[in-house]
Simulated assay, not measured.
Amino acid sequence: MQTLDVINSVTELSDTRVTGKTVVIIDVLRATSVMVTALSYGAKKVIPVLSKEEAFSYRNNHPEELVILAGERNADPIEGFDMGNSPVELIPGKIDSATLVMTTTNGTRTIRKADTASELYVASFLNAKATADVLGSTKELVLIASGTDGLYSVEDVLCAGYLISLLKQMNQNFHLSDAAIAALNLYESNMAHFPGITTEGRHYNILKKKGKNADLQFCFLKDKFPVVCQQKEGAIVKI
């Protein structure tokens, strides 16, 4: 039997729920949206790190690479970094073969915490269909909604629900956990007026107040990029 579970925030994440399983990390606003966009625009890889010190250290130790530092703390850019945590800051042709080193409040922390998974993918609305297409035969699948500051974020669970909807269209054999049933119901209840309830969410409105309207519009584009992004040897790459 194929099983499909949803973890609703990084604070729910534990080794027992992910070890040996295939996981998909979701951070719609905005880390995984940035990663997907960067790899679609030609970046060679994305390195998720936990701190700005770790990011600076990577660049110092890899002078042979074109390293771009990207990230945020509390939704604001980090001093000394090349860019914030924004997909609209990325320009096609400007990051060809670059290594994007990222640290964010939520998404990169979730990726690093899920390191006992057998396979790890990152996804957002931008590449949901392409990601679902490679997961249909997965035996044990866990979708991890990163959340915000350790709490539930409606946009991440909505994206998990969209992925489940896509998977069910391809394969009716997944046994859904209660959390997966709830995520699917959330998406189905909002798909007619997508992104629906997300616009009332805490993180959405934090970004809106900071003037990040272009990011908000971009991050909810469904299936803009036909790319699959998977972790290989500590780096997120396009496969």
Rank of each mutant, 00 (worst) to 15 (best):
N190S: 13
A179E: 14
V88T: 11
V142P: 01
E79Y: 08
S14A: 12
Y41G: 03
G136D: 14
Q231S: 13
I68R: 00
A182D: 15
L221K: 13
T104R: 09
S51N: 11
K222D: 02
V67F: 04
D149F: 05
K208A: 13
G201I: 07
I236P: 05
D156G: 10
L126Q: 10
P226F: 02
A114V: 11
T104C: 07
S146H: 07
S33T: 03
L39V: 08
V227M: 06
P87H: 01
R109S: 12
R109H: 13
I144K: 01
L143V: 03
E140P: 04
M1W: 14
N190H: 09
Y58Q: 01
V46C: 03
S137W: 11
S33F: 04
S51T: 14
G150M: 09
H203F: 05
V23F: 01
T11A: 15
Y187I: 04
K224T: 06
A183N: 03
K44Q: 14
E188V: 05
Y58I: 03
L69Y: 02
G150Q: 09
E140S: 13
A130S: 13
T32R: 08
L184R: 05
K210H: 11
L120T: 09
Q217C: 10
E65D: 12
D15V: 07
A235S: 14
L126F: 09
E12T: 07
S124K: 06
S189N: 14
V36R: 01
I26T: 05
E65K: 08
A38L: 09
S40Y: 12
P48T: 13
L216P: 04
A192K: 13
P87M: 03
F125L: 06
K44I: 07
L126I: 09
E140Q: 14
L69P: 11
A183T: 03
D76Q: 15
P63L: 10
I47N: 01
F225G: 05
G161C: 01
N61G: 06
L207Y: 04
I164L: 08
L158G: 09
G234S: 03
Y41E: 07
L135N: 02
P87N: 00
S124E: 10
V28W: 00
S14I: 04
L100I: 15
K45R: 12
T105S: 10
K209R: 15
S124M: 11
G71R: 01
N60D: 13
S51M: 08
H193T: 13
S124Q: 11
T3L: 06
M83I: 11
S9N: 12
A145I: 03
P87S: 01
T110E: 08
A114P: 12
T103W: 01
L216N: 02
E65N: 09
K21D: 07
L143A: 01
D27L: 05
E64W: 07
V67N: 04
D82R: 06
A43F: 00
D115N: 15
G211V: 11
G80L: 05
G93Y: 08
S165F: 14
I164V: 05
A235Q: 14
I144C: 05
V23W: 03
L163K: 02
N61C: 08
E155W: 08
E200H: 07
D133L: 14
S57N: 13
I206L: 15
G20A: 11
A145T: 02
E233T: 14
I197V: 13
P87F: 03
G42E: 02
G161V: 02
